[in-house]
Amino acid sequence: MKIEKTEHFLNFCCEMGRHLVQSGAEIYRVEDSITRLMHAYGYTDIEVFAIPSCIILNIMHEDHNYTKSIRIRSSAIALDKLDKLNNLCRRVCRETPDIDTCFAQLREITSAPLYSELVSYLAHGFVAVFFTLFWGGTALDAVIAFASGLAVKFANTTLGRMNTNIFFTNVCSSMLMASVPLALQYLGLNIHIDMIIIGAIMLLVPGIAITNVMRDMIAGDFLTAMSKLTEVLIISLALAIGIALPMGAARMFLGVM
């Protein structure tokens, strides 16, 4: 059976929205992009609604209502993908090619290779190293921070594969991260635990979410802002617990300061 043109187009809009949300676009941009797409293809009676976990689209065309809603579960910030999707959206709006071509180009973007695991591990390590130096750590602190950064990446990947929730993942990651310098200090190394932990915690702190919450709120997406604010608070709480547990234990039982 031949799929109807409007439905086919609706599917494309949904997939576009899904990938935009998943690569870290603001909700404002997602709704704006889909609206522009629909206008470009001549649909005027439309409704677009998006929050980080769901997109609902409706097109009314020749007295028919075409509706589609999708649930979005995981998202990981991928800024290169976001840039390419944005460019594709502009190009499609300008040239309005047929939908199969659009789908092919979308698939090309989403199947583009990511950085390898090795690069990702190294990047986590170097973020921790240079933020430790940034906050005033010594060279020895920086070397240990590299290990802490690797620990964060290791915990995140392993737990991510097991499909655990965001709270538990962050508790475990920060616990493992804080244990590295604590253990080494217990073994007698003269290091600054605070500098190392602050350096490595930058990998986990939801700084991007904090700024996005306000940006969403200003754009009038209160539902999005609230759900992200909850995420920020949960992650912050998880980090505090994850660092407090090993540090408190080390102070009480081992006498490490």
Binding site: R29, I77, L79, N87, D194, M202, V205, G207, I208, A240
Partner: peptide
């Protein structure tokens, strides 16, 4: 001609108060 988010997300990271969170705890 790229989304501003890309430059903002990375550029703002040094300002994130990670130290404050740590010392509070």
């Amino acid at each position: 001609k790229a989304p501003a988010t890309i430059f903002l997300v990375i550029g703002i990271i040094p300002l994130v108060p990670g130290g404050g969170l740590y010392y509070t705890m």
